[in-house]
Computed example of a mutant assay.
Amino acid sequence: MDAKIGIKPDQLSEVAHSLNSILADEFVLYTKSRKAHWNIEGPDFYNKHKFFEDQYTQLEQITDDVAERIRTLGHYAPATLKEFLALTHLSEQSREENSSMGFIKDLLADHESILIRLRENINGYGVALHDMGSSDFITGLMEKHEKMAWMLRAHLT
């Protein structure tokens, strides 16, 4: 059933399509954070194992929230690995070494990349597509990613 929420169907479709890419990015970053949690080694193992668990737990909730936002707009959320890999702008491959610093650098780069994309869409959703709800929603996502990126960045100083 179509969502009759005061936004034209073509505009809802455009927002939902954009959110599909955001969902794919979130899912890939979630998976990479899980990888870090599972594969961390070294003298800081326990500390970083718990740290990465906190990160992926937050991303799991973000992923669910994005999918539910897409459904709120009357569209279906992608939900297969194939779809996510086709929609994401992130690489599922790590660029750094398999150590705490390697994982942190890689995850930080992905958070920062997502932050740039979110910022690029805030005004477009609100002004061009008349969807202030989605604009506000991704502003909230941006704030969550800013904090998660700060937590990662703090390990690098």
Score class of each variant (00 low, 15 high):
residue 94 S to G: 05
residue 57 T to N: 15
residue 28 V to C: 01
residue 4 K to M: 11
residue 68 E to A: 09
residue 100 S to Y: 13
residue 71 R to E: 07
residue 149 A to R: 11
residue 70 I to R: 12
residue 117 R to M: 13
residue 12 L to F: 01
residue 134 S to M: 05
residue 121 N to W: 00
residue 108 L to C: 02
residue 96 E to I: 09
residue 151 M to S: 03
residue 132 M to I: 05
residue 88 T to L: 12
residue 42 G to R: 05
residue 58 Q to H: 00
residue 37 H to K: 08
residue 32 K to M: 12
residue 34 R to A: 13
residue 88 T to D: 06
residue 125 Y to N: 03
residue 112 E to S: 10
residue 44 D to W: 06
residue 102 G to E: 03
residue 62 I to A: 07
residue 5 I to L: 14
residue 16 A to M: 06
residue 80 T to K: 08
residue 157 T to V: 11
residue 154 A to I: 05
residue 5 I to F: 10
residue 152 L to K: 13
residue 91 S to D: 14
residue 136 D to Q: 08
residue 33 S to C: 04
residue 75 H to E: 00
residue 152 L to A: 06
residue 121 N to H: 15
residue 53 E to H: 10
residue 36 A to E: 11
residue 102 G to T: 03
residue 145 H to E: 06
residue 37 H to N: 08
residue 138 I to P: 01
residue 22 I to Q: 11
residue 9 P to Y: 07
residue 11 Q to M: 03
residue 74 G to I: 14
residue 115 L to Y: 06
residue 134 S to I: 01
residue 92 E to Q: 13
residue 7 I to G: 00
residue 99 S to T: 12
residue 81 L to P: 05
residue 54 D to W: 00
residue 58 Q to V: 01
residue 23 L to K: 00
residue 41 E to N: 08
residue 126 G to Y: 06
residue 45 F to Y: 15
residue 41 E to C: 09
residue 141 L to R: 02
residue 154 A to R: 15
residue 36 A to D: 03
residue 43 P to A: 15
residue 128 A to E: 07
residue 47 N to Y: 14
residue 69 R to T: 02
residue 141 L to E: 04
residue 34 R to I: 01
residue 23 L to T: 12
residue 96 E to G: 05
residue 88 T to R: 07
residue 9 P to S: 12
residue 43 P to W: 02
residue 93 Q to A: 08
residue 34 R to C: 11
residue 11 Q to F: 11
residue 64 D to F: 07
residue 112 E to K: 08
residue 100 S to T: 05
residue 13 S to C: 12
residue 104 I to W: 08
residue 6 G to V: 01
residue 28 V to N: 02
residue 141 L to K: 10
residue 56 Y to E: 08
residue 6 G to I: 01
residue 39 N to E: 02
residue 121 N to C: 13
residue 80 T to E: 05
residue 108 L to W: 09
residue 37 H to S: 04
residue 90 L to K: 15
residue 102 G to V: 08
residue 143 E to D: 08
residue 58 Q to E: 05
residue 151 M to Y: 00
residue 135 S to R: 10
residue 150 W to A: 10
residue 55 Q to T: 00
residue 130 H to Y: 04
residue 103 F to W: 01
residue 25 D to N: 15
residue 133 G to F: 03
residue 152 L to N: 02
residue 112 E to H: 01
residue 135 S to N: 03
residue 63 T to C: 15
residue 39 N to Y: 08
residue 65 D to Q: 14
residue 94 S to L: 15
residue 125 Y to Q: 02
residue 157 T to M: 06
residue 64 D to K: 08
residue 87 L to W: 05
residue 40 I to W: 07
residue 136 D to E: 09
residue 58 Q to M: 06
residue 106 D to A: 09
residue 14 E to L: 13
residue 145 H to N: 06
residue 117 R to C: 07
residue 117 R to D: 00
residue 77 A to E: 07
residue 2 D to L: 13
residue 25 D to Q: 03
residue 62 I to F: 12
residue 60 E to G: 12
residue 57 T to Y: 00
residue 128 A to W: 11
residue 102 G to D: 05
residue 91 S to L: 02
residue 156 L to I: 09
